[in-house]
Write a protein that binds this DNA or RNA. Sequence first.
RNA 1: GGGCGAAUAGCUCAGCGGGUUCAGAGCGCCUGCUUUACACGCAGGAAGUCGGGGGUUCGAAUCCCUCUUCGCCCACCA
Length: 903
Amino acid sequence: MPAPTFTLPPQYDAKGVEPRLYRRWLESGLFTARADSPREPYVIVIPPPNVTSVLHMGHGLDNVTQDVLIRFERMRGREACWLPGTDHAGIATQNVVERMLAAEGKTRFDLGRERFVERVWAHVRATGDTILEQLRMIGCSCDWSRTRFTLDAAYSRAVREAFVTLWEQGLVYRGHRVIHWCPRCLTALSDEEAEFGDPEPGTLYYVRYPFADGPGELTVATTRPETMLGDTAVAVHPSDDRYRALVGRRVRVPIANVEIPVIADPAVDPAFGTGAVKVTPAHDAADFEIGTRHGLEMPLVMTEDGRMEDQAAGGSADGGRVPASLRGLDRFEARRKIVELLQAQGLLVRTERHEHALRRCYRCEAIVEPRLSDQWFVRMQPLAGPVMAGFRRGDFRIVPERWVATFEHWMEHIRDWNVSRQLWWGHRIPVFTCTACGHTWADRRDPERCSRCGGAVEQDPDVLDTWFSSWLWPFATFGWPERTPDLARFYPGHTLVTGPDILFFWVARMLMAGYHFMGQRPFRTVFLHGIVRDTRHRKMSKSLGNGIDPLDVVRLYGADALRWTVIAGMPLGQDLILDPDDLESTFAPGRNFANKLWNIGRFILAQLPERVPAIEEIAGDQLTLADRWILTRASRTVAAATDSLEQFRLDEAAKRCYDFAWKELADWYVEAVKPRLTRDAAPWPAAQAVLLHCFDTVLRLLHPVVPFITEELWQQLPGRRPDELLAGAAWPRPRPDLEDEDAEAQFERVKQAIERIRSIRADYGVPPRVRLRARIVPRGADRRETFEGERETIVRLAALSELALDGAPGATPGPGAHAVFGDASEVFVALEGAIDLGRECRRLAEEIARLDRQLAALGAKLTNPNFVTRAPADVVAREREKERTWREQRDLLAGKLQALGCS
RNA sequence: GGGCGAAUAGCUCAGCGGGUUCAGAGCGCCUGCUUUACACGCAGGAAGUCGGGGGUUCGAAUCCCUCUUCGCCCACCA
């Protein structure tokens, strides 16, 4: 045996290896895509994490998935560009800094806009690279030379260009309507940002509105009594006979003490409550519609932070609705107070329990307050059309397909997008108004004076929705609106990997921006993976405290273990369930696998000399059955893994390679080859060449999933140039020239025989030192020659089972019971040794009985005329074949039973 | 109120166009192993009426209907 040229420790030390290898990858420049490369590009743009965020498992899953794809394509020879970066995340980031200020007892208003924004920038500069650093820790092969931030100067230019272009195209307008307002963040939200929470128990209040023009009253039902101060009508359904006569009369709003009309509107559901609904146009989107139809007043009765007060804005001169006793009260406080007042005045008829879902701010979870205000909107229908047309043409696809229906529904029912936010952190809206003549326009540059009258100008104080910048990500990152070489080369991109939770926020809008501004799709495939959940299927989140810190996992088990777990545990489109309370059993499989590879490597490397012949240099007659089997399996694994990756079944690819490395290469081939390698003469070079070929192949296949351990081992393989990296090596191809179907089938039978022997040993408790004697003979005279040719291999493999074979070296025939065992294959194994005959007889009898039962059932099937005539011929043939095999098996067992001397 | 997904071993999941890789894998469990790559290992083993019910078919974990339970998305019943 050649002396090992080095000694590797028996356990793989991920911590010591990973940072070193990552540095080597960086230094090699492999991650940096070249725009002038002749290779076909492959582009993924990262879903930019919020600049203030720290890595969580959701990022881990998302980015490891991207890394697997990008490494796969890079190895396949594509010019792989994985563009990284961060999102300025308007509300989220502003909230973070506001909380920091709050800790100092200050608000953003204390600082003023300019100093506040500076403060945010300082925070971003200090901590903004955190998450990108963390991505390096888990091995992400991003093109760091192209890192972008959605608030960079160049990027800001793109945002501005996009906005002004839309303005010029008439796709931006000022809308005066009820929008979702967060009274905590003090900003408007888009429909998507006002998320429905879980249904909560609430109360439905039945309130009397006395007629102002006569006796009696009208009872309305509401969940939000505080908004009654802003009521400007009571509406009933036009065909509701109960109320038809009342339409046109007037009622008095209690507490607010104003008179309002009773109107008829088809939006009212006569079945809900009393069928009469109070209309608050300034604080309810549906009521706003009614108010618009009927030309109602729309008074605001709350401040921006949700306290009761008459507001001048809202297009109503109708003030004085909020009585002094309620002024300044928080809306929920006011609700309680108003209910009390109503009760005291005998105007509260009754209350009812009423469960309903409330919309909450997606950043701070405050209950959203619908509020009438002026905002900038983007018309979405003109943008959605080309996307759907492209989708129907097959420009891009969504994987897995079940999201298609959701996507289509949203696109087809798309509503205009409120893009203005009353924040300070973000892209300031480039709309300017002349203080003199009132002219309003959008501008690519900050104007000094009004373009019409030369008067002073004021810029809109609001900023753009953060998604208004990220929807440009696939091209703004490459330099748009400049026509850069990068843009020409890397747009359109290829795969967009993200979770379905931002399908509308981001993916759909990127598609719209891509088609609208670039004239073509931004990517070919949208790959939506699942969401990370805990064992109770709850989303992992900080607030629930059920999160797993990916960096803890890296420290404890290594980045490869983390990567293995998220990839192997994530079937296409399914959620990933991880147990935060048991990191060991969640991540140990990945660590164990890395260690297994390590030890396969340790063994193989110890066997290989400096120069190992290439597999092509080995003559066919040098290859044993085991050699041809493992080469065949290697080739098939390459084909299967490649196919799975192409179909985004990453888990399948990973597991297939795992099985090949562990269950085939390590468990069988390495064991089979040991006798050959540890004996002197023999066909060494062939075994070495096969070992090297197979190990090299599986390292390549596994590299995208577990890049560190594979690179570390690959570096040690003989014949590597010092500057060669697995990360830049070629993806393997299937080798039909090395496949041998017969060898594959034959070796499977050998495996079966050996497994049977091992099973017998265990069943009968044959001590390890006691050798069983066995004779292996082929079944069927016609196969004898073929089989004899493989005898050597079988003898060696049998040796692993502590089995002495007739004719094998060291086998000593002796007296004793002679039993004949077999499996369903063509291999008979004759054993001699200490065996509990009685037990074996009972086992055989049971097995025979079972076969008899199966044969009876099968016989019935085969004599069923329906089956014979209607099932396809090949199916019938297979069933007949099965029957024959079972019968043979049964006879065989019966023979054994007889041979054992029991009846 | 609509739509979607899931239900298979104790746990997490495969099984992708109905018939030999149809009852599987990993973890866990049980029994043996200091076998000179690996105890993060090796060998062997137990374990499931494929959520309930109905249907289609010669044949269903697989297709259809229905019920139950979980999860998600969409929605202007105040």
